[in-house]
Design a protein around this nucleic acid. Structure first.
Length: 256
DNA sequence: ATGACTGCCTCTGGCAGA
């Protein structure tokens, strides 16, 4: 069973690319981030035509997440994270599907840092950690996947110096990420690529894609109950090179 | 040292992204 995550950077602009990807790779579950549309604008019919049923949490212009499943509708468990009643950004959606708990996340970018956006990022990470601890306590096979906006190690970026001041690789951001791993979650891609050098994002600017100047920020974290079932994982890198591509590439895990 | 693309909704320029 394949589970994929894809920051699509606008579902309206990306729809042909997205449908093509679903048809060609047929993941059982697809977690999408940055749909950038209100709930009413979500093209559920287009996915239904391909046999995918979806749940989504939209927002005007920015953010927004969705979970699609092949032949079955994900059963929603949570929409948004607890811990901040003021937070109106759509960044978290959790469902039960195919006997798995699947959480789709779009963690805040946090730039510029320092500043209020960085503080929001760090607080959001703590709220995520609290929810992930609850899931872990249920001892269910679970995957938390999406755009974490964290570059975990220096080997996860083409040039650490070029990104040194960026919120994605500040010690506080990394600590927040490593605390999740310390709670027992397995970073699928890191486990299978211990030397790093695997990117999931390439900037649109300055020819970053052509020069392969990317970094790894889209992750799949597996609970102990699921980590044993990890058979393969990877990045669908070629998608980044297509016409009208997202600046992210899809990440997938194959589970027994 | 700086700016560079792209999408969104539209005060068609300013914001956000990473």
């Amino acid at each position: 069973m394949k589970i994929a995550t894809y920051n699509i950077n606008g579902i309206k602009a990306r729809l042909p690319r997205l449908l093509e990807w679903l048809e060609e790779t047929r993941p059982a579950v697809a977690c999408l981030q940055e749909i950038k549309t209100q709930d009413e604008g979500f093209p559920a019919d287009e996915f239904e035509k391909l046999g995918y049923h979806a749940i989504w949490h939209g927002q005007k212009s920015f953010n927004g997440v969705a979970i699609l499943a092949d032949g079955t509708k994900p059963v929603e468990v949570r929409r948004g994270l607890e811990g901040d009643p003021e937070d109106e950004q759509s960044r978290y959606l959790e469902a039960e599907v195919f006997g798995l708990r699947v959480a789709c996340i779009y963690l805040p970018n946090g730039n510029p840092q320092p500043g209020p956006k960085f503080e929001y990022k760090l607080r959001w990470m703590e709220r995520l950690r609290a929810r992930m601890a609850e899931i872990a306590a249920e001892e269910v096979p679970a995957i938390v996947t999406g755009d974490f906006n964290v570059i975990p190690h220096d080997t996860d970026v083409w040039a650490p110096a070029a990104m040194a001041g960026d919120a994605l690789m500040q010690p506080e951001s990394r600590d927040g990420y490593f605390r999740l791993l310390g709670d027992g979650w397995t970073d699928a891609l890191a486990t299978h690529n211990p030397r790093g050098g695997v990117w999931t994002y390439w900037d649109y600017q300055a020819g970053a894609w052509q020069k392969d100047q990317g970094f790894r920020i889209d992750h799949a974290l597996l609970s102990p109950e699921l980590a044993d079932r990890l058979e393969a994982c990877g990045v669908d890198k070629a998608r980044r090179g297509r016409e009208k591509a997202s600046d992210h590439a899809p990440v997938w895990v194959e589970l027994k």
